[in-house]
Structures are given as C-alpha cells and as structure tokens.
Lab assay of single mutants.
Amino acid sequence: TETYETTDETEARKIAEELKRRGLTFRIERHGTTIRIESD
C-alpha cells in the first residue's frame, strides 16, 4: 500500500496516472483541501 497526500489537484492527477500506468488500483479520498490517494 502506498499513500500520497497533496493539496494540489494537478499533482493528484499525476499520481493517479502513474499508479494506473503501473497497473495498480487505488482510491481517492478528499478531506477538505487535502486529496489522499491510497493504492491497494
């Protein structure tokens, strides 16, 4: 499991693209301005 936290929408998108490219599944949670991406 890898966890990323960012407040930057663009960075979050880049992380999501990278995880997809590596064939990982992940979920995105939003907590206020923080975007949390957690891979399975």
Rank of each mutant, 00 (worst) to 15 (best):
37 I>T: 01
18 E>Y: 13
21 R>S: 08
22 R>L: 06
2 E>M: 14
18 E>Q: 09
1 T>L: 11
9 E>K: 05
35 I>A: 00
10 T>D: 14
6 T>V: 10
7 T>S: 10
16 A>F: 07
18 E>M: 14
21 R>N: 07
24 L>Q: 05
7 T>N: 10
34 T>N: 06
40 D>P: 15
1 T>W: 13
38 E>W: 15
21 R>L: 07
13 R>G: 07
17 E>I: 09
25 T>E: 08
1 T>S: 11
8 D>R: 03
37 I>A: 01
38 E>Y: 15
5 E>I: 14
5 E>L: 11
35 I>Q: 00
17 E>Q: 11
37 I>L: 04
26 F>G: 02
12 A>D: 01
33 T>P: 09
32 G>E: 04
31 H>D: 11
27 R>Y: 08
26 F>Y: 10
24 L>G: 02
26 F>H: 04
3 T>R: 12
36 R>M: 06
13 R>S: 09
34 T>S: 06
30 R>G: 03
16 A>M: 15
22 R>H: 03
3 T>I: 15
1 T>R: 14
25 T>S: 13
23 G>F: 03
13 R>D: 07
28 I>P: 01
2 E>A: 10
1 T>Q: 10
11 E>A: 07
35 I>L: 04
39 S>G: 05
36 R>Q: 03
32 G>T: 02
4 Y>I: 04
1 T>I: 13
12 A>N: 00
11 E>S: 06
22 R>T: 01
5 E>T: 11
4 Y>V: 03
27 R>A: 04
34 T>A: 05
15 I>F: 08
30 R>H: 08
35 I>H: 01
28 I>R: 02
4 Y>F: 08
6 T>D: 00
36 R>S: 04
28 I>Q: 03
34 T>R: 07
16 A>W: 09
20 K>P: 00
32 G>Y: 03
29 E>S: 15
10 T>V: 12
29 E>N: 07
6 T>G: 03
9 E>F: 08
40 D>I: 15
29 E>C: 15
32 G>R: 02
11 E>I: 12
35 I>Y: 10
39 S>R: 07
9 E>G: 04
25 T>M: 09
7 T>I: 06
11 E>D: 05
17 E>T: 09
2 E>F: 15
15 I>K: 04
39 S>C: 15
22 R>M: 05
13 R>A: 12
27 R>M: 06
26 F>W: 05
11 E>P: 01
24 L>K: 07
12 A>P: 01
21 R>D: 04
6 T>Q: 00
6 T>M: 05
2 E>G: 08
37 I>D: 01
1 T>P: 12
39 S>I: 15
6 T>L: 07
28 I>K: 02
3 T>C: 14
9 E>S: 06
39 S>A: 15
11 E>Q: 08
2 E>T: 13
33 T>G: 11
18 E>V: 07
37 I>S: 00
12 A>Q: 01
20 K>F: 09
22 R>K: 06
33 T>H: 08
36 R>E: 00
19 L>D: 00
2 E>Q: 11
36 R>K: 08
17 E>W: 12
13 R>L: 13
7 T>L: 07
33 T>Y: 08
26 F>C: 15
4 Y>C: 05
38 E>H: 14
13 R>H: 09
3 T>G: 04
40 D>N: 13
26 F>L: 05
18 E>S: 12
14 K>M: 13
31 H>S: 08
23 G>K: 05
28 I>C: 15
29 E>I: 15
34 T>F: 10
14 K>D: 06
7 T>M: 08
36 R>F: 08
8 D>A: 03
20 K>Y: 10
31 H>Y: 12
6 T>E: 02
31 H>I: 14
9 E>R: 06
6 T>P: 02
9 E>C: 14
28 I>W: 08
38 E>K: 12
36 R>T: 07
22 R>I: 03
33 T>M: 12
29 E>V: 14
25 T>P: 06
22 R>W: 04
3 T>P: 03
24 L>E: 03
24 L>T: 03
9 E>P: 14
25 T>R: 14
4 Y>D: 01
26 F>E: 03
8 D>C: 09
10 T>N: 14
19 L>I: 03
30 R>S: 05
